[in-house]
């Protein structure tokens, strides 16, 4: 068994595609119309074109808002992405206007930060501790 796909609920797929590609730097893998207005829209990392896909899933189900809003209020991220250097990525994203709810925090084996993806979710980025 392999983890092939994971997903985040997004308010607006077109807006999410822009944020996740133009700001975060992922690339589109699949874009297939589903139903009247929804798309099967997945992304991959340019560093791993054959790797796990991220599905930008329409947040149409009525329970999604409650689920996400409650987690966001407490600052809980819904997905985690790996980066080489959280502090460098934090500076890069902040320069692009991304709002962070947690600045880079050294927690020993890992450094993390949390930002708002503007599509309804908080996302955590993490990097393993740099060898000193």
């Amino acid at each position: 068994m392999k983890i092939h796909l994971t997903s985040v609920f997004v308010d607006d797929q077109a807006k999410a595609l822009r944020f996740y590609t133009e700001i975060l730097g992922f690339v589109k893998k699949h874009d297939v119309p589903v139903g009247e207005k929804d798309r099967w829209l997945t992304l991959v990392s340019p560093e791993e074109p054959g790797g796990t896909e991220l599905l930008l899933e329409p947040a149409g189900h009525p329970i999604v808002a409650t689920y996400r809003d409650t987690l966001v209020k407490d600052g809980i991220p819904l997905a985690q992405f790996a980066v080489d250097d959280v502090t460098a990525e934090y500076e890069r994203l902040r320069g692009l206007g991304v709002r962070f709810t947690q600045e880079p925090l050294d927690m020993g084996p890992v450094t993390t930060a949390v930002f708002d993806d503007t599509c309804g979710n908080l996302i955590q980025i993490a990097s393993a501790a740099q060898s000193r």
Partner: peptide
């Protein structure tokens, strides 16, 4: 200025 999530992370990890 920390979220509940950050406070929990600090208590468990640090």
């Amino acid at each position: 200025g920390q979220t509940l999530f950050e406070i929990c992370s600090r208590l468990s990890m640090k």
